[in-house]
């Protein structure tokens, strides 16, 4: 094959095809989540830190501080690659409580959020439930309305098993976020703080947001490197139900 045999018009056509398709994908296909300001630069009062386990790759324990900083808990808090650990249960004076299902045992590990050291607080088959509103980790399913390219978010103020038909505003709760958002954007979990003043929101863009429950301020970005679907637990969340 020589240079003379090669077709320059077809090479140019290949280049035009690349540019055209990339342009279509970038300008039409790619949607972006609503912009929010970082908590670190636009702070409001957040009552407590929040913890979660990131299971992308080797599991790791993370803590978001009220001042906007986000850190990985050092040491080896989850032990042995972290594969054995189940759900986050609570965060009280004993530490962050994690259900451990390793080696067929139901154990509760209490992890020190500062040092990463852990101790088993129960190894006799005890199970704990977190202070939940329907989802593990104290989370609740946010109520989302979409209309004319806008997303309206409310947090239910009480647990309801039925659908929203006929529910009054007191049950639904006030609007905590009203924003323009693409149809592909979703808030997948909401976890009210123990004092009820703020709600942590996990969205499908891998962001962790925090917003006051009275809707007085737009959400702030805690981190954009959170898992898309995770359990979150606030400090001060007590296990509400202990059963053998």
């Amino acid at each position: 094959m020589t240079g003379r045999d090669r077709s320059v018009p077809l090479l140019l056509a290949a280049g035009v095809l690349v540019v055209a398709v990339v342009a279509v994908v970038l300008f039409v296909g790619v949607e972006r989540p609503p912009a929010v300001e970082p908590l670190a630069t636009a702070p409001f009062e957040v009552p407590a830190p929040l913890a979660w386990i990131d299971r992308d790759g080797e599991p790791s324990l993370w803590v978001a501080e009220p001042d906007g900083r986000v850190r990985e808990v050092e040491g080896d808090p989850l032990g042995d690659g972290g594969e054995a650990y189940g759900e986050l249960l609570a965060w009280n004076d004993g530490g962050i409580l994690v259900q451990d299902w390793s080696q067929g045992a139901e154990r509760i590990a209490a992890i020190d959020p500062d040092t990463g050291s852990r101790a088993f607080v129960s190894d006799d088959g005890t199970t704990l439930r977190s202070e939940a509103h329907g989802l593990p980790g104290g989370g609740t399913a946010p109520l989302i309305e979409r209309r004319d390219g806008r997303l309206t978010l409310r947090i239910p103020t009480e647990h309801r098993d039925d659908d929203r038909d006929g529910a009054d505003d007191d049950a639904i709760g006030p609007v905590i976020w009203d924003t323009e958002a693409p149809a592909s954007y979703d808030v997948v979990t909401a976890v009210p703080s123990p004092d009820g003043s703020v709600v942590a929101l996990g969205d499908n863009a891998g962001r962790l947001l925090v917003v006051p429950t009275d809707g007085s301020t737009d959400p702030r970005l805690w981190t954009d490197r959170a898992p898309r679907y995770a359990q979150y637990v606030w400090e001060g969340t007590e296990p509400a139900d202990v059963a053998r």
């Binding site: 095809l17 690349v18 398709v21 279509v24 949607e31 954007y185």
Partner: peptide, 24 residues
């Protein structure tokens, strides 16, 4: 990108790769 695009655009990119290969 943080929000997963519609599968149409994934497929369109794959088709473009095939098209470029064909043209080359």
């Amino acid at each position: 990108y943080p929000l997963a695009p519609d599968p149409f655009y994934d497929g369109l990119l794959v088709a473009a790769v095939g098209g470029v290969w064909f043209l080359l």
